[in-house]
Design a protein around this nucleic acid. Sequence first.
DNA 1: GAGTTTGAAACT
DNA 2: CAGTTTCAAACTC
Length: 734
Amino acid sequence: MDTPERSQIGTPISKFEDSPVFNYINSLSPIKPVKSIHITQTFNPLNFSSLPSVFTSPHVNSHKESRLKRHNCSDPSKPEFSSENGNKVCTNEGIGVDATQLYDKSAELQDNFDSGVSDGEASVEPSSEHSKFAIELPRTLKYDCGSPVCDPTPCCGTEAGCMPTSLVQCGQEASAKGSSEGEVHLSEMCRTDQTKEGLECDWESLISDCPDILIFNSPNDSEAFKGLIQKSVEPLTRFCSSLMSQLPRNELMIMSSNASEKLDNEVGMYMPHGSKAVTILHRGMRRRCLDFEMVGARRKNLGDGSNSSSSMLSQSDENIACHDKQLVPFKPGGDSSRCILPGIGLHLNALATTSKDYKIQSYLPGSTASLHSPSNSQEPFLQSLATASSERETDHGENGAAPVEDVSQASAYQVSDDFNQNSPKKKRRRLEHAGESDACKRCNCKKSKCLKLYCECFAAGVYCIEPCSCQDCFNKPIHEDTVLATRKQIESRNPLAFAPKVIRNSDSVTEIGDESSKTPASARHKRGCNCKKSNCLKKYCECYQGGVGCSIGCRCEGCKNAFGRKDGSAPIGTEAELEEETEACENSAVDKVLQKPEIQNNEEQNPACALPMTPLRISRPMVPLPFSSNVKLSRASFITVGSSSGLYTSQKLGKPSILRSVPKFEKHFQTVPEDEMPEILRGNCTPSTGVKSSSPNSKRVSPPQSDFGASPSRRSGRKLILQSIPSFPSLTQH
DNA sequence: GAGTTTGAAACT
DNA sequence: CAGTTTCAAACTC
């Protein structure tokens, strides 16, 4: 349905005109949709018609295209699109683009929309240029309208007409006013990493945010407009939600806080409670990840509306924030560092990354960041958008064995998927052997339907994919509802269930001098292990698997964890860490071997990574760690969502660490401005508390919490923790 | 590749 | 909260 309509749109009138929205817009705008034709053409083929195909297989479909786009655009030099709009165009696609570019792009896109669809008030700009972009638009639009969920008719039809206008206007304004300014209504626009934008938009917010832009003859008009938009919103939001669920692994979707919230509200049914509509997939993630955020955190943003950079709580928010604020400031040349997404994977949400100073490192707690890359920082984030594919390739390429995976992952997950090996197991092993097991693990569930934490995929917050050899798998986009519901259920039972199991201190990386910090010891398993026979020397041990030492929180027996034994009596604090680290150092050659990889990882995680990554760097991390920890972490990080509980935990714990291990984390802490801290973190976030209490594992988690919770200084502690995220150090306080 | 071991997750 | 069962990964042969 969509397709035909859309295509027709190009032919100016036809059905499109019929849509109420369209009509409304037309009435509003002096300009007539002559140019719509351009758009139409573009849209028809690509976007709407093939929606199902596009979304259906997140893994494959979108990637291919995205990939192509990326390549094309990634190259700034490429003038193809550039010309007038050129850079912008590329930006959309190319992740690598600067924030500014992105910003511009959004504006352009909007423009495009205008020209293509209805000019509405935006009319101001000449559409001629837009036509050029039209080509690209379709691409972007694809994602938008394609979704089956979305009502083709209302959604697409209207979208084309409506969205563009409103958005365009806002975007134009923003761009016009100030690209320099920082404020960006553009942010309101939705974007996917590559070019797919416009997925979701908060119409209301747009309208409210861009009062200047939108001109209504009368109050009634505005209301009417809203109404129209609203109508279209619902399907749109649905579509978005579905879209998100189906986004290709590498895709990054960025929404404004408002938009995201709206989505959440609208799509609540689709999204897990408190989860963010925004889905962020990063390199590490090949699959779509659901980002579950604390709603509360987000709320703040909402309130902030335009500027509240400070309040960004969730990842998505962060992202948004970056785009909104930071991105704008961004210069192409760049401070890559500015918009640093703390850890992409992790709870990005929890971390508020607004400040430029932030270094990814701090955030990156081991969780996500660690992953391969440098992506930890926002910059990486941005880069990733632009260059995700390239990076991956690089990274893995270095590994040597991994290349296949990386490559595949990088640009097209499909590839990896396609990269069929005869048996799933083999595939899996292959990958693992490649050393990049981390990239993606595949599960082999038989009875859990991949809806329990037994399933690594599910636990990681990712859908199972072809390579999985699971049976009766429900962990697929098709069963999204079930997955979300189950997830929710599990989270209700244990808020930390989806938190990264291992919390790492990324700080170490920052401080080059400190090798000790780099040691796994700095990281700890959130709950600790309970090993009895493995002596914490095998992967059965989650601590060992995660490449971290055991801590007091562990209930293991006969612990011989190479990364650090739990000292029953020893305080966990910094000292403990030091001890552990020392031990680790002392460890036999084996340990050393093991440790090395870890260190490397840390480095990668390190904020430094945020800087443009050199292939070397990338390569290092890529090196297969003896432990798959990286992998898991990476995954986990993405997943985490949830509740961020992990973060919270770490935070609480972290406090103490700050006191003792000031040197390590100090920097980070300093860097972090309170303003930027998420509400949750700042305040007594109930969530954290709740998490603690609720968590079944409270055993380990709770201790630190309780201790800290009592302390008045909590706040500061949290801050510190957030940045550094040393989970266990906190224990030391005692 | 099949079977065993292990410990987390889930259940009672 | 503790004990038991279930489950799937890790490991061994």
